[in-house]
Write a protein that binds this DNA or RNA. Structure first.
Length: 322
DNA sequence: CTCCAGGGATGAT
DNA sequence: ATCATCCATGGA
């Protein structure tokens, strides 16, 4: 089993794959297996080197050609060209951000295929990471293409056309619940050509956001995820409950802040790589709370050093008014 | 404005 | 072993 080496500075592969951007990579031995587009890939990290291989090709010349392309594809997917030191240096200098920056060394924003990212985040609404992984796997197993890398089976993410042909019930059987209707409707818009995800790359941030939000099942949060993870809009700042909690506790303690004001703050304060800042704050908060052994509805993560019960938060909200 | 939809993991009891 | 809670969008 021959592995190709790729130099990868400032990358933490395991953290990157576990930071809530992608949901299909599976840990195998010292590395991970997953799909990058249509290609089944195994990847493991040794310090500043990635060792990779992809699935078999039918003939030897083809296999050689594919192997030559693989390093470029992997480097592009993991965004090894992002200037991570510069990006981190552009973050604001404050305690929460500094803690997150320190904690998340080597965390990169992956470049995901647009349809795969959009569809996956439509499925993510009102779900937690563990569950999104199950949905992604169910969709891939049922509608994707089976590939092998070594002894491991990997399924590619099904194209929009294939999900558009599925019935709502087919999708529900993948544990999508009420998201089945939205995913199917969006798949039809994309596969019919009425919505051309590739051509949207040319749009400004606000125009792109508007287009994405026009799709069934896509609101502001999911639109921002897709902008950040699939359109390289590194300013896009998705606000989920984790980030909302962090922003309020770290930047507006004991103050009521309206939702539009919080959004405005998130879009200006964190600068040109706000999406990266968001990812760092998000991942730090998630892991810190996971390790604290304290449920997050009874206290904030230990790393932030603030204790605040849900009851107290409610009290504060009731006390203050604009 | 509120309420609800679907559901597996997770943590509390 | 039960039980409550997590989650974001869209429609009633």
């Amino acid at each position: 089993m021959k592995l190709i080496k790729i130099r990868a500075l400032d990358l933490d592969l395991a953290m990157t794959l576990d930071s809530g951007q992608v949901f299909h990579w599976q840990k195998v031995g010292n590395g991970f297996v997953g799909a990058i587009g249509d290609r089944a890939v195994y990847v493991e990290q040794h310090a500043n080197v990635l060792k990779v291989r992809d699935g078999e090709a039918p003939s030897l010349p083809q296999a050689r050609a594919k192997a030559r392309a693989l390093p470029r594809i992997v480097a592009h997917y993991f965004a090894l060209d992002h200037p991570l030191a510069e990006i981190c240096a552009s973050f604001p200098n404050d305690p929460a951000m500094n803690a997150a920056r320190l904690f998340c060394c080597g965390l990169r924003i992956i470049r995901q295929p647009k349809w795969e990212c959009l569809a996956t985040f439509i499925c993510s609404s009102m779900k937690q990471v563990a569950h999104i992984r199950q949905i992604s796997l169910a969709l891939r197993r049922r509608f994707g293409d089976r590939r092998k890398v070594g002894d491991h089976v990997v399924y590619t993410f099904p194209p929009a056309q294939r999900l558009a042909r599925a019935t709502e019930n087919d999708l529900r059987e993948c544990a999508l619940g009420y998201r089945a209707k939205n995913l199917r409707a969006t798949a039809r818009l994309v596969s019919s050509g009425e919505c051309d995800l590739e051509s949207w790359s040319a749009l400004s941030d606000p125009d792109l956001r508007e287009k994405l939000c026009s799709l069934p099942g896509v609101g502001a949060k999911i639109a921002n995820c897709v902008m950040l993870f699939a359109y390289e809009r590194l300013r896009a700042f998705p606000i989920d409950v984790w980030i909302e909690r962090v922003l309020k506790q770290q930047y507006f303690p004991r103050k009521k802040i309206t939702e539009p004001r919080l959004r405005e703050f998130s879009e200006t304060y964190f600068g040109e790589h706000g999406g990266y800042a968001q990812q760092y704050l998000f991942h730090h908060a998630r892991i810190a709370s996971r390790n604290s052994g304290v449920s997050r509805d009874s206290s904030t993560p230990k790393a932030f050093g603030v204790r605040m019960t849900k009851g107290r938060i409610r009290d504060e909200r009731e006390q203050e008014h604009e």
